[in-house]
Structures are given as C-alpha cells and as structure tokens.
Amino acid sequence: MSKKKKVAILYGGRSVEHGVSVNSARNIYEYIDKERFEPLTIGITKTGQWHLTNGVTKDIEQGKALGLILDAQHPGFMLLSSGDRMKADIIFPVLHGTDGEDGSIQGLIRAMDIPMVGTGVLGSSISMNKIVAKKLLKAAGLPVTRFLAYHYTEQAEISFKDVKKELGLPFMVKSASLGSSVGVSKVKNEADFDKAIAEAFRYDDSLLIEEFITGREIECAILGNNPPEASNPGEIVINKKYEFYTFDAKYVDPEAVRIDVPADLGKKSAEKIREVCVKAYQALHCEDFSRVDLFLTEDGSIYINEINTIPGFTNSSMYPMMWKERGVSFTDLISKLLDLAEERYDRSKRIEREFNSSLKF
C-alpha cells in the first residue's frame, strides 16, 4: 500500500474573509480522502501567526505555534515549542482574499518549492485585482462592464457628476482587491456616493466603479489545465429584499438566495457561457480551478464580473455544487485538485534554473 501524502490545509489568514476561509477549510478537512491523504491543518490568525491546529477551528490561537522552514531543499514547518520539524507533500491554501488569494502566499509556497493547489503568483495577483483583471479581459476581447478606476491619492478627483455622466445610475463601487462583496456598495443617488467611496477605500488603496447590470447572476466552475473543463452554469437567484449579492446574502441569511444548479438556460446560451468562462480562465493565467462569475441580460448579453481563484468550499458554495451536478463528489473533487497540483509541479521541473555562461564571479 502506498504511503499517504501529507496535505497542509492553510486556512484563516489576515483578511476580512477570515471566517469564510475557516468554513471552507472545515469542509475540505472533513471530505478529503483520508485513505490517500493525511491532512495537517494549519491556521493563520487575523494578525498573521501560524499554528498547527487540531482539525479546523476558529480558535486558531489555541493551536501550536509554527515557524516556516524556507530551505527549498528541506522545506516545511517547525513547532516553535519543541523544534520538531514537519514536512508537507502538498499545500492546499484555502485562504480567501488579502494575503491568501492575491499571490502573496503563492509566492511564499513557490519559494519553499512544495506542490501547491491552485493558481500561482501571476494568475492570483491579476485575478484578485478587479481593475487589472478587467483590463486584461477587455484586451482579450472578452465582455466586461464599463468601468472607472481610482487610487486613494486621487480621491479628491472622484466626482459623482462625472461618474454619473460616464456610467449612468445606478452604479457599483468596489474595493479593488477583495471578495465576498466586502467593500461593495450600490449607488443610486448622490447621497449614497461619499459613503460608498469611503467604504471601498476603507479596505483597499484602489477602487473600481462600474455600471450596474440588470441581469441574472450566473456562475461557472472551471477545473483543470490542459485543457480546462467548464461545468454547467449555475444561477444565484437573489431575494428581492437585497439590492445585490451582499456578504450577508452569501453567508448569513439562509433565505437570501435560491441556487439553481444547473441554471435554466438554453443549450446555446449555456455553451456560450462555458466557452467565455474557459477563455477568461486562460486569459488571466488561472490554474487547477476557479469560479467565473457573470451577468446574463435579458437580450442574451454576457458580462464577466470577476474570477475567484480560490472559490468557497462552504456548504452553500457554488463551486462544489456545480461539479456535484456533473457527478463529481466533494471527496473526488478534492482528490482531483491535489492530483492536478502534483502533476503541474512535476511538469515545472523541466524548466532549467541554471545558465552556464562565461561570466566570472
């Protein structure tokens, strides 16, 4: 019998999405195939301390404090209390938002030279930043909404009158690099404007202002690399008491939404959405898995809203639901992601890291 692979599940993190990460990691820990994999649960506190925990818990500080071993020949983790070392065969970051989904952790893991589930440094950083992502998607000829972007230093130049003239009313104001609808506001009049700008800048140095699209909220799950595969699209049907898909609607209020998997779409429309989502995934250099969020208007127009490189794995998360509809269980999905990580890591070894030259040093 082959030896179990040790999988370090990273969760928590210094992010406003810390709690969502805990819930996602709890499911991955529960459903991971323990016949093939031995999970190590490593929590990162809201202030950035790393701890080995007994399962996945919100009380990360109660775990054993860890240090990181950044020796690429012998990477791993060290218990600070005893000096004992632990090695992981694969790392599965289940970190949503800042410092977890933006390339920061991905760069650290790459320096450790350990196989990692999910998109690498480049794809994570550009997908996380809504402004950069929209610019690249637009350059690739993919459909995005009209938008404006501002840095914190340009705050005095942001004019309600100018935005209204360019985008119309209502419009959306968003922090550039957050998820789960944190730092997002819908502006219907000038009275909403200053509060929305302050809320977005509260969480980020850059913000995005984009036209409001009246349409259906469609999501599509992407899995794999060569080539990636798209699930059947699903739909989020939001209760009319919500102006848009807010944080509470996503995670707090069980009556806020109805999830239809698959979405009630015609075959032609569904295929068009799947094709656009795969192209978006490739345009932003995503790897292993992502969830693409879109709007579908009454006239059949599609607009890509954003791409989540570490989509949620909570009980209400669309990503695992969409693959379950295709016959892929939660456990099989996790195994597939871990296998993809190892395959991609093995392929990366073909790249030379030394160059023999006549340079003397």
Rank of each mutant, 00 (worst) to 15 (best):
L108I: 13
G43T: 01
P93K: 05
G179T: 10
A133S: 15
K58E: 12
A133Y: 11
S104W: 09
P170T: 01
D89R: 07
T53M: 04
I126D: 12
V121Q: 03
G43D: 02
D102H: 14
K164S: 14
V182D: 10
S159L: 09
E166A: 15
I105M: 15
A176I: 13
F147R: 10
G76I: 00
S181H: 03
R110T: 11
R146H: 11
G183F: 14
V184F: 11
I105H: 05
V184L: 15
P115R: 10
D102L: 15
K130V: 03
P75S: 13
L167S: 04
H74V: 01
D71I: 00
R110N: 08
L169A: 00
D84W: 04
L167I: 10
P143I: 06
T53K: 12
L68R: 02
S177G: 15
D84C: 02
D71W: 01
G118H: 07
V184Y: 11
N129A: 09
T98F: 09
A65I: 09
S127A: 13
Y150E: 13
G48P: 01
G97N: 12
K134L: 09
I90H: 03
I60V: 03
T53S: 06
G63L: 04
G168Y: 08
H96K: 06
K135S: 04
K135V: 01
S125E: 10
G63E: 04
Q155E: 07
E154Q: 15
A88P: 00
L68G: 00
S159Q: 12
E154G: 04
D59K: 13
G123I: 02
V182A: 14
K64P: 03
L167W: 11
N129V: 13
L136Y: 13
D71S: 05
V56A: 04
F147Y: 15
N129T: 11
A140L: 07
K165S: 11
I158H: 06
L136E: 06
G100C: 09
E154P: 04
K161N: 05
L137N: 10
L79D: 05
L66F: 01
D113Y: 00
N129D: 15
N129P: 10
G76Y: 00
L136F: 14
A139L: 13
G67F: 02
V117R: 02
S82N: 10
L142A: 11
D162V: 07
T98L: 04
N189P: 01
K186Q: 08
D59G: 05
A65W: 02
K46S: 04
I114P: 09
R110H: 09
G183V: 12
K164L: 10
G183M: 09
K64F: 13
L178V: 14
A149F: 03
V121K: 01
S81P: 00
A140G: 09
K164G: 02
K164D: 06
K174C: 09
S177D: 15
G48D: 01
Q155G: 01
G100V: 09
V173I: 15
M172K: 02
V182R: 10
G179A: 14
V187E: 08
V184T: 12
T57K: 06
K138S: 13
D113G: 03
E154W: 08
M172R: 00
L95N: 12
P93H: 08
V56F: 12
V144T: 15
T47V: 05
L70P: 00
Q49F: 10
G107M: 08
K164P: 05
N129S: 06
S181W: 08
L68S: 00
S185H: 11
K161V: 07
S125P: 14
S185M: 06
S175E: 11
S177C: 15
L178H: 14
K174F: 14
